[in-house]
């Protein structure tokens, strides 16, 4: 017999969708970024940092890091759920992942708005 575990209020579908939406955004951003970076007249501090200090690019980059954090949260959590069965350990890993990603997102915001 298959024992089914009830795992909460169907956050599965929402996260699945969010993972795909953020992935799509990251694809678009990657193309824009690659184009902007590869066409820089010169790869020095002035040009490179100016790339991110424009209002639009700063916003798009910020959105990229937010997407990345949400995307990686869903993805890494899926990986823990596949391989780590003891509940306490799994919960701890989920929390560490969450804290790290929130921290990284804050760090990215700090970098972008200091420019």
């Amino acid at each position: 017999m298959v024992k089914r575990l009830v795992v909460g209020a169907h956050y599965g579908l929402r996260d699945w969708l969010a993972q795909r939406a953020t992935a799509t955004y990251m694809v678009l951003y990657t193309i824009v970024f690659a184009f902007a970076a590869l066409t820089l007249p010169k790869m020095d501090y002035e040009h490179w940092s100016a790339l991110f200090s424009g209002g639009l690019m700063r916003f798009l980059t910020f959105l990229f890091f937010m997407s990345l954090a949400y995307h990686a949260w869903v993805g890494v959590r899926d990986i823990w759920m596949d391989y780590v069965k003891p509940l306490g350990l799994r919960l701890a890993l989920h929390l560490i992942t969450l804290f790290l990603l929130v921290g990284y997102a804050g760090w990215a915001a700090k970098i972008l708005w200091r420019l």
Partner: peptide, 19 residues
């Protein structure tokens, strides 16, 4: 995906320095 996640702090550190 897991590798990118694990080395994310290193990449952010480099990005921070670079700008």
């Amino acid at each position: 995906g897991a590798g990118l996640f694990l080395l994310l702090p290193f990449l952010l550190y480099l990005f921070d320095l670079s700008v």
